[in-house]
Amino acid sequence: MSDAITAGSVTITGHGGDQIEAYLARPLDPAPHGSVVVIHHMPGYDAATKEIVRRFAVDGFAALCPNLYSREAPDASPDDASAAVRAAGGVPDERLVGDVDGAARHLKSLEGANGKVGVIGYCSGGRQTFLSACSLRLDAAVDCYGAFVVNDPPPGMPSSMKPLLGLAPDLSCPLLGLFGGDDQYPGPEETAKLAAELDKLGKTHEFHTYEGAGHAFFSVDRPSYRPEAATDGWARILDFYGRHLAA
């Protein structure tokens, strides 16, 4: 399979019919491929997130990251846009689900799409991945250290971040969770509680916790980056999507 890709900014239809910016990358190989919606972390729609989108394309998936902050700060830097959205209370859950749905529909409309769509998110995007997988019909979901699925957030976090454990019965697809053993949000006790609830409900899930890794261990541009955990995590993500998003 060729690793040639095309990538760039596009406009998609998000929640409520809003036209929002998104970053799309896809293989040039004409073979049928699965698709992935990438939900960016709280720091925003940034260069590191776009690199993740391109990596999925190199590995044979069409990938699309909607700019969740398009409405509040369409022309701002990722840092300024993130600050503006946090000050406004964060991204409303209903709007997030609508934007992910719009991204999934866009991916399904592309030439070569096999009709299967997964979702992945990091940090706040991990929580939003769980929300999306419980609100939409998707084929696979990957939660990378998403906090506040189980526990309430501490003071100072956006008001939109409410626990989501009550949605677990509606989980529509297999879930892969990748967490840091040294993380506080979510801490190991929080992810264990989520795993126990999914076990009780008979929901398909795979959780892996990396000792010596904290929050944001996938972030190559941050001191929190842990190469061993990130390398193993990427291998698990690609295997998981290879199993669940294949034609």
Rank of each mutant, 00 (worst) to 15 (best):
3 D>C: 01
9 S>R: 13
9 S>V: 07
12 I>A: 11
12 I>M: 04
20 I>L: 13
20 I>Y: 03
22 A>K: 04
23 Y>V: 04
23 Y>H: 13
23 Y>E: 05
28 L>M: 09
28 L>F: 02
29 D>K: 03
31 A>D: 01
32 P>E: 02
32 P>Q: 02
35 S>A: 15
37 V>A: 10
39 I>T: 02
41 H>K: 00
41 H>W: 01
42 M>W: 12
43 P>S: 04
43 P>Q: 06
46 D>I: 01
47 A>I: 06
48 A>I: 02
51 E>T: 12
51 E>I: 03
55 R>D: 13
55 R>T: 14
59 D>V: 02
62 A>R: 12
64 L>C: 10
65 C>T: 12
68 L>V: 00
69 Y>T: 07
71 R>L: 14
72 E>L: 14
73 A>H: 08
73 A>Y: 04
80 D>M: 13
81 A>V: 06
81 A>L: 09
81 A>H: 02
85 V>W: 01
86 R>V: 13
86 R>M: 10
89 G>H: 09
91 V>W: 07
92 P>I: 12
96 L>A: 12
97 V>Q: 09
97 V>K: 03
99 D>P: 02
102 G>P: 06
105 R>K: 15
105 R>F: 01
106 H>P: 07
106 H>M: 07
110 L>W: 09
115 G>I: 03
121 G>K: 08
130 F>A: 06
131 L>M: 05
131 L>G: 10
134 C>S: 14
138 L>A: 12
140 A>N: 07
143 D>S: 14
148 F>W: 15
149 V>A: 03
150 V>Q: 12
150 V>A: 11
151 N>K: 11
156 G>A: 09
163 P>Y: 07
163 P>W: 08
163 P>G: 09
164 L>G: 10
165 L>N: 08
175 L>K: 11
176 L>E: 04
178 L>I: 07
178 L>Q: 14
180 G>M: 08
181 G>C: 11
182 D>M: 14
184 Q>N: 15
186 P>D: 11
187 G>V: 07
189 E>W: 06
189 E>V: 08
192 A>W: 00
193 K>H: 06
194 L>M: 13
197 E>A: 15
197 E>K: 15
201 L>D: 07
206 E>K: 09
214 G>V: 00
215 H>K: 10
215 H>A: 05
216 A>S: 15
217 F>A: 09
221 D>I: 04
226 R>L: 11
227 P>I: 12
231 T>W: 00
237 I>G: 10
238 L>F: 15
243 R>A: 15
245 L>Q: 03
246 A>H: 08
247 A>D: 11
